[in-house]
Amino acid sequence: MAVAGEEAIFGDSVITTKLDSAISWARESSMWPYIFGTACCAIEFMSVASSKFDISRFGAEVVRFSPRQADLLIIAGTVSYKQAPILKKIYDQMSEPKWVMSAGACACSGGFYDNYTTMQGVDEIIPVDVYISGCPPRPEAFLEGLMQIQKLQAKPSKYLKKRAKRDFKGRLDV
C-alpha cells in the first residue's frame, strides 16, 4: 500500500488520524468516574477497583469525588426521594461530555423496593446512557458497562456538541 503525506516522510514514528478520533481515544483510555455509591452496589464497586478485577486495566481507576473533575457518573445503589436532589446537583455540576451509568436494579428501576421512599429509577431525574442489571451486578458487569460507555463516546465532536444541548426534562426540572 502506498504511503503518503507525513507518514511517507517520517515512517512509523508518526500516525496521522482525525482530531476527533485522537481525542476520543484519549478520553476512552482515561475515563474519570465519580462513584455515586449509596448501597450494596458500591461494595461491589470496591471489588471492581481492587486488584482482582482491576478497573485500571481500562484506564478508569482515577476515581474522583468532585463531579467537576469527572466525566463518568456511576450510580451504584438505591436512590431515595431524599437523595434525588443531591444526585441531580452532582449531575448538573459535571462538565460535558458526561456519561451516566446506572448500576444495579435499584438505580435502574427501584428494584424490589417498590415503595413510598424509593425513586423508581434514576432516569426519572437525570438521563442515563448505560443500564447494568444485577442486584448487585457482578464486577464483570461493571466492566462491561464501562466498555459500552467507551464505545458510546467515540463519536464525532459535532455529535457531542449537539448531545450537550439535548433536551431532558426530569421530575426535578422545573
Partner: peptide, 18 residues
Amino acid sequence: HPLRKDYPITKGQLCTKT
C-alpha cells in the same frame, strides 16, 4: 406517616431540596 396501616405502600413523595 408511612408506617401507618392506612398509608399506601407505593405512595412516593418527591423531595425538591435538602
